[in-house]
Write a protein that binds this DNA or RNA. Structure first.
Lengths: 234, 234
DNA sequence: ACCTGAACACCGTTCAAGT
DNA sequence: ACCTGAACACCGTTCAAGT
């Protein structure tokens, strides 16, 4: 048997597009080799002509999302370096949160693709422009990466539906319901701050945390940190 | 047919112990309902008598690991609050890193189990002892959680073998090999700091980052931050 | 309530074969 | 080189049945 079907119709990008669609529609667990193959109208094992295994597909998928962040705009020397770091981190957060399924995938694959490397390179360049020496820049870059990754992970963990997340206001409301059920007798302090917690897991809170991290990294760039902290409030 | 076999031999804890073993031996992907059932000598669907679905098993597994951290010892009022925060965060890191598979699982399940709540409660209590008001404590607690989760995720991502990670020195050596292959022409700054990067993803670096975060959160507790930063070096 | 066998609708991956 | 059908060794979950 084995009818060959049309040749040369496939490409890695076509497979990755299909994977992307599955990720958006069904979440991280919905991305399967068989699903990708079905979507492009091909036998499951045809995928193995382009990728050695599933991990390679997921790795390319993750790196592709990181490639959607245009890094060149953060290299503008007119912009203060601290603002450029913040802009880059926020752009990353927004891109990852737009495709929440990708975050679960990031935990499983090492971030060594070309686009991940490019982001790291940009970050090191900005930090270097800020006057940090090589070692300081390396440590700062690691700390900032930790922050972005951790913040996005926690924010995504609260979403149960796959696909692009609902507006921030709706997410706050949904969280409030869950937090309201914290038993006051067992966890008094958690219950006391539940309403606050529900309210502040937002982009503003992400920026607030980022400012604190930068204050710790480069105290001399902090413009009266406590003022900034209080200013973010209301 | 349906020979009943002995009754009442099973318990949720027995199933979780089996799950724990699978996690340690085969990693996050090796934890399966069928595998758990086989290990305790029972039909796969017997598991559904104790847990509604696989997600519930994984959730209980994650919360169980968090329960291994004894929180009471961080409530000692003799200890400065900043040191207590650091001790709690380090204890959490050590526990999660001892069972690296758990970290991948944490990305998929919301952290609302009793032990997760207890850790959050302890953290809020320590921050409150540090003089932070409810809102400050809530924000700080969130930022610290983000840091611990992000740091552990990045550290675990570099391990490919399941089971307890090798000694820190061996992990540093293994990373150095990978980092040495960064192409200098394409990513000059990344290549320049590769050796540093390989060296510093350690417990010391975790504490260094934690100190920076705390400096940003409570600048008044920082004892000349730049000195601390430089002191961590050599 | 607790456990069973059997089945359903899936997986990732390999292999020999066809063009 | 690129794709196929078929198979292997797995999954999570449901259902009717037995005690």
């Amino acid at each position: 048997m084995a009818r060959p079907g049309p040749r040369r119709t496939l490409s890695p990008d076509q497979l990755l597009d299909a994977a992307q669609e599955l990720l958006a529609e069904r979440g991280a667990g919905g991305v399967s080799i068989r699903g990708i193959a079905a979507r492009v109208g091909v036998a499951p094992n045809a995928v193995y002509t382009y990728f050695p295994d599933k991990a390679a597909v997921l790795g390319a998928l993750v790196d592709g999302v990181l490639g959607r962040v245009d890094q060149t705009r953060f290299l503008d020397p007119e912009m203060p370096w601290r603002e450029r770091v913040i802009a880059l981190a926020v752009a990353l957060r927004d891109e990852l949160l737009a495709d929440p399924g990708i975050v679960a995938l990031m935990g499983g694959v090492p971030l060594h693709g070309p686009n991940a490397m490019a982001v790291g390179e940009t970050l090191l360049e900005v930090l270097s422009a800020g006057g940090l020496d090589a070692e300081d820049a390396a440590r700062a870059s690691y700390l900032l990466t930790v922050y972005v990754l951790g913040a996005v992970s926690l924010e995504v963990a609260e979403l149960e539906q796959p696909g692009p997340p609902p507006p921030e206001a709706d997410r706050v409301a949904a969280r409030a319901v869950g937090f309201a059920m914290v038993p006051v007798d067992r966890y008094p302090r958690s219950a006391a701050v539940a309403a606050t917690m529900a309210r502040y897991i937002t982009r503003d809170q992400f920026e607030w945390g980022l400012e604190r991290v930068l204050d710790g990294l480069a105290p001399e760039t902090a413009s009266s940190p406590r003022d900034v902290a209080k200013a973010g409030r209301k």
